[in-house]
Design a protein around this nucleic acid. Structure first.
Length: 272
DNA sequence: AGTGGCACCTGTGTGC
DNA sequence: TGCACACAGGTGCCAC
């Protein structure tokens, strides 16, 4: 689930529950995520939450003491739930609040991350966040700047737009989708794009991501439900996961190839 | 510095 | 039914 829109929707959902509340307890599972969880996480107990932010696909939670950087990996999700409800398989981390509610982190594959940032350190200066490229909605990222960043790359344009050093937030699904909308073949060399193509691509990245955030927003009401699966934007996907089916524009078959170990979906007729 | 390959981990679907 | 295998939304590390 977690591409940028899902992370943004998650951030907005948990922010309402967390902000200005006191952490009464922390649960930390035994198994390591992408890195082992710090024993210092327990020092969050008694602290108040002062902000919940997003950078790339990371969620940053600041308290009046330490901070947290959370990443959902491939299968992570957060659930807003009454603290008294029993935990289930793959619940790895939980913030219990003075309201009787909890934010629980569940991650089947454990590619996610719960990173402790000691009091006094700026989470945005963490190596996890420090060297990230621009946000897709950053006004300073214009077509010329995107083109400049792509022109330094000889890899495929799909791999390039998925590289957080070029820009953040474009995952495997939206890479295929935005390239389809921009009529650019995913295997094109990143440094072969024209300025017009870069402009079109940036416009489509912004449109698709904001549409997904808007449609994902409704799923927040299901957060207390058992699974919390969104599945809304899945219905809007034009090429991703549709190999062999008809292109919604020209009717020819959608193809799939592997680039950098990840599947890419495209229409060989519409895209050049 | 950029690149491709692989590793991390669990679950699900497919084909034999 | 059982089994082997491919594949899945992300990222980091390694050798080149």
């Amino acid at each position: 689930m977690p591409e940028l829109p899902e992370v943004e929707v998650t951030k907005r959902g948990i922010a309402g529950v967390l902000l200005n509340h006191v952490i009464t307890d922390i649960f930390k599972g035994e198994k390591a995520l992408r890195e082992p969880m710090s024993p210092e996480l327990v020092t969050l107990k008694g602290k108040s939450i002062v902000s919940v932010e997003r950078r790339a696909k990371y969620i940053i939670i600041r308290t009046d003491g330490p901070a947290l950087i959370i990443h959902l990996g491939m299968t992570g999700h957060m659930q807003i739930i009454q603290s008294s409800k029993p935990r289930v398989l793959h619940d790895h981390f939980e913030i219990m609040l003075d309201s009787g509610m909890s934010v629980r982190y569940n991650d089947t594959r454990r590619f996610g991350l719960v990173h402790f940032v000691p009091e006094g350190e700026d989470p945005f200066e963490s190596p996890l966040l420090k060297n990230l490229g621009p946000e897709p909605f950053d006004p300073s990222l214009d077509a010329a700047e995107l083109l400049r960043r792509l022109s330094r790359r000889s890899c495929s344009v799909k791999q390039a737009i998925m590289d957080p050093k070029v820009l953040v937030g474009v995952g495997n699904i939206y890479a295929s989708e935005t390239l389809f909308l921009s009529r650019i073949l995913p295997e094109r060399k990143a440094n072969s794009l024209s300025e017009a193509e870069a402009e079109c691509l940036l416009k489509n990245i912004r449109e698709v991501l904001s549409e997904s955030i808007a449609s994902g927003g409704t799923t927040i009401r299901d957060f207390e439900g058992a699974d919390g699966k969104p599945g809304y934007f899945v219905q809007k996907l034009k090429v991703y996961g549709h190999a062999g089916e008809k292109c919604p524009v020209c009717g020819n078959a959608i193809h799939s190839i592997v680039l950098g170990g990840r599947s890419a979906f495209f229409c060989p007729v519409c895209q050049h």
